[in-house]
């Protein structure tokens, strides 16, 4: 089965519908599926719910879908870098569900692994625990969190082979593997598609079973906070 598509628009053809639930990889602006997000903006799909650790910045990442009012709800751990997000949230136009970062990652992983719920200590005694089942194990209290299964996952990897085996690069891996796992369909954008057999099978980060469609393209890869030291400091 052919997984390679010619463009982000082609790769998303037939998958988008209003009100859908999408998991997106990335941490801040690092490792975000920027080409697929741009194609969703162009498609104009509305009332989207995103499970994504962050919401991009005003003009990059999920931020571009906030500008066009395509997002109904975000499930995120940190949204501090986006002024338009805050404006829409404070005016009630946008729903926001805060999840602790590790809880969000595990909800995606669990959903993709067929685990509908798991107990965690994270958030016990905080507002995050309100309304959730509490259960004691070995004298410690845990809360029940639910696995996430989304209609679609959009993910950024470094390299894919033609069967969808993926390799990520440095900290751009972040939420991409768990996001890929939790989608009923997963579309991946990469910097390079390499011939099947050219990746070391021992060095595959995410096996192609999780990957349904692949595109290659040029990425802007914007840096959010450029921090450096001077060479003479060394």
């Amino acid at each position: 089965m052919k997984k390679i598509y010619g463009s982000a628009q082609e790769a998303l053809d037939g998958l988008l519908f209003d009100g859908m639930f999408i998991a997106a990889g990335g941490f801040g602006l690092c490792g975000i599926p920027e080409l697929l997000l741009a194609a969703i903006k162009d498609a104009g799909t509305k009332d989207l719910t995103f499970a994504s650790n962050n919401a991009g910045v005003d003009d990059f990442g999920i931020g571009i879908l906030l500008q066009t009012r395509q997002v109904k709800k975000m499930i995120s751990s940190y949204v501090g870098e986006n002024a338009e997000f805050m404006r829409q949230y404070l005016s009630g136009e946008l729903e926001l569900e805060f999840n602790p970062q590790g809880t969000l990652a595990e909800r995606m992983r669990a959903g993709g692994c067929g685990i509908p719920g798991f107990y965690t200590k994270t958030g016990v005694g905080t507002v995050i625990a309100d309304g959730k089942e509490h259960k004691d194990f070995n004298g410690q209290t845990y809360i029940l969190e639910h696995g996430i299964v989304t209609d679609l996952s959009i993910v950024k990897a470094w390299k894919a082979d033609e069967t969808g085996n993926l390799v990520f690069r440095k900290t751009a891996r972040n939420f991409n593997p768990p996001a890929a796992m939790c989608g009923k369909i997963c579309v991946v954008e990469v910097e390079e598609i390499v011939p099947t057999g050219s990746l070391d099978p021992d060095h595959i980060h995410l096996p192609g079973i999780y990957v349904h469609r692949i595109i290659a393209g040029t990425h802007e890869k914007r840096i959010e906070q450029r921090t450096t030291r001077k060479r003479e400091d060394a």
Partner: peptide, 24 residues
């Protein structure tokens, strides 16, 4: 965000958008 063994800030010109800390 997915790293053990975090090093110092890069030298000017060596910044890598794929290599950030949890403070971005």
């Amino acid at each position: 965000n997915g790293m053990l063994g975090m090093g110092p800030f890069p030298f000017e010109g060596d910044e890598d958008p794929d290599l950030i800390n949890a403070g971005k």
